[in-house]
Amino acid sequence: MELDETLDPLTIAERWMDDGRMVALATVVETWGSAPRPVGSHLVIDGEGRFHGSVSGGCVEGAVIGEAMEVIGDGEPRMLEFGVADETAWRVGLSCGGRIRVYVERVG
């Protein structure tokens, strides 16, 4: 479908930036097994923890948003990994059994 500018995370990221908000971008860079969102999927987060888009089916977004706030603070990109093998599986993990790596960076 054509680019839906009301739902597209990269368009939202640009709009938030223009509004003067601090913005971080999280991107799924690698998946193993049954991952809920494909490689390249984005979650955009602002300095107050507001977010748009998804990197999983809602399983790990909370943790990603927390890390994104840190990235906005110090500007250092981070690589996050989530999966059932993780000791935090039942707290923050993918119940579907897959594993994903998520790259989080600040815009600007």
Binding site: L3, E5, L10, T11, A13, E14, M79, Y103, R106, V107
Partner: peptide
Amino acid sequence: MDPFLLRKLNTERTARRAVIHLTDLG
């Protein structure tokens, strides 16, 4: 991510041109 690149990426996508956003993870 460079804010200028975010704008460029969105401009290209809106204009229906194929682009790749390349990030050095190091």
